[in-house]
Simulated scan of single mutants.
Amino acid sequence: MALFNDCIEVRRAQLVTDDYGKHRDWDNQTVVWSGMGAGVPYRRAWKAEESTRETALNRATLYLPGNVAVDSSDRILFQGNTWHPEGEAWKWKLGSRQYTMIQVKLVTK
């Protein structure tokens, strides 16, 4: 098990409705969880074919202590970047301890 020595924040924004429909109000986001966790970035970034896209996709697995409620629309601050969850968080126990595992992605240029 990796050491829990990475600062991680889970941020959430309310769904608001305006003249253009519904969207997340990221200007008024709130921190729903903040603490020390373990982040394991994958070694290589996947890069799309350069003729069609100019971005790279990085992925990581984050481990948080406790039963953390993470929504698929949340944003996660890790290593100074804003990551996006992929799928649902996975809750698991190891003896009397509880953990939350999240697969996240980061799109960069």
Rank of each mutant, 00 (worst) to 15 (best):
N81K: 06
Q103H: 15
R59A: 04
V70H: 00
R53I: 11
V107W: 08
D18K: 03
A2W: 15
K109S: 12
L77H: 06
Y99K: 02
S51K: 09
L64R: 01
N5V: 13
L62Y: 00
D71N: 15
G80R: 05
W90H: 10
K93Y: 09
H84S: 13
T108G: 07
W90L: 08
W83G: 00
H23W: 10
S73Y: 12
V10H: 02
W26L: 08
D25I: 09
S34Q: 08
D25A: 13
L106K: 03
T61Y: 10
R43D: 05
N58P: 05
K91M: 09
W92T: 03
L94H: 11
K93T: 07
N81I: 03
D6C: 11
D74E: 04
Q29R: 12
L64A: 01
V10Q: 00
F78E: 00
A60S: 03
G39N: 03
M36L: 14
S96N: 13
D6K: 10
T55A: 10
A69E: 07
N67H: 05
Y42H: 13
L77T: 03
S73L: 13
A56P: 01
T108V: 15
S34K: 09
L3Y: 12
V16D: 07
A48M: 14
S73A: 13
G21Y: 14
V104S: 00
V10I: 15
N58Q: 09
W26T: 06
T61G: 04
W33Q: 00
K109W: 13
E50Q: 14
S34W: 04
D18I: 04
D6W: 11
W46K: 08
T82K: 04
R53S: 15
V31T: 08
E49S: 08
N28Y: 08
A45N: 06
A45F: 07
V16L: 12
V107D: 04
L3S: 10
P41K: 05
R59T: 04
T100F: 02
A38K: 02
N28M: 11
G87K: 11
K91S: 07
T30V: 14
P85Q: 03
E50P: 05
R43C: 05
A2K: 11
V68Y: 01
D74T: 04
Q29N: 15
R59L: 10
V107M: 14
T100V: 02
A56F: 03
